[in-house]
């Protein structure tokens, strides 16, 4: 579903991604770990078509992002670290707006049902987003993914700043989406969530996947230790 083939990106003289190869299948949650500057956000941006690769290609459901970014984005839902919504719109209005941008048309009742599914009650959904916590915004982001029936979900530090309960709730929703055969690529520093949720973990170092572990590997071993060892700390 999500595939990076020999993906390269340079910023002036700095190599951000160095022939990255990566594949996330439907139903998989792939946690991309790595220190700051390893290339995690660059990878997400290349899948979104916000950056143009210097080599290789990013594919979403077989569509080359560089060749047709709009078509590729239609298959993706994206949840950034801070889900930036319009503060003067309510949750349901934001969902309607962003869903409409992707061509979706939903009734008010359907929008409420989607938000409810994402864990946002009706009364909260009608409140202005300016009053929302970060967790509530993330839920609107999840509802957006549900609304569009996205085949792939890109997450950039999604649990950063969430309290444990919100983080737990968020993980539950992710696993639910994975159960619906959505391919999920999650760039994160949250080793605990990665261990809990991911089906595969990749450690990105200097623009390359330095190591990759399947769930049974990092479940049986200490992920933090594996990660730190790989970093040479």
């Amino acid at each position: 579903m999500l595939e990076a083939k020999q993906l390269q990106k340079r910023f002036q003289d700095k190599t951000a991604l160095d022939k990255l190869n990566l594949k996330v299948e439907p139903g998989e949650i792939y946690a991309l770990l790595g220190p700051n500057g390893a290339g995690k956000t660059t990878t997400i941006n290349l899948f979104l078509g916000f950056l143009t690769p210097d080599g290789g290609e990013a594919l979403v459901d077989g569509i080359s992002v560089a060749a047709d970014p709009v078509a590729a984005r239609r298959k993706i839902a994206y949840i950034p670290e801070q889900v930036a919504l319009y503060p003067r719109f309510s949750g349901v209005e934001n969902l309607e707006y962003f869903s409409r941008l992707g061509g979706g048309r939903h009734s008010r009742a359907e929008l409420h049902a989607l938000l409810e599914r994402a864990g946002l009650k009706s009364d909260a959904a009608e409140r202005m987003v300016g009053t929302y916590s970060k967790g509530m915004r993330q839920k609107v982001g999840i509802a957006l993914a549900l609304a569009t029936g996205a085949k792939a979900l890109l997450l950039d530090e999604p649990t950063s700043g969430l309290d444990p309960a919100a983080s737990h709730e968020f993980s539950r929703l992710l696993r639910q989406l994975a159960g619906e055969k959505v391919a999920i690529l999650m760039a994160t520093h949250d080793l605990f969530r990665a261990r809990e949720d991911a089906t595969r973990v990749g450690i990105l170092l200097k623009g390359r996947i330095a190591s990759e572990y399947h769930r049974d590997e990092f479940q049986s071993r200490d992920l933090e230790k594996l990660y730190l060892e790989r970093l040479g700390a």
Partner: peptide, 17 residues
């Protein structure tokens, strides 16, 4: 302004030109 707040990223990620 949307670029500054990050809303533009979310908006363009929806698949609209």
């Amino acid at each position: 302004g949307d670029r500054e707040s990050g809303t533009l990223r979310l908006a363009l990620s929806r698949g609209i030109g």
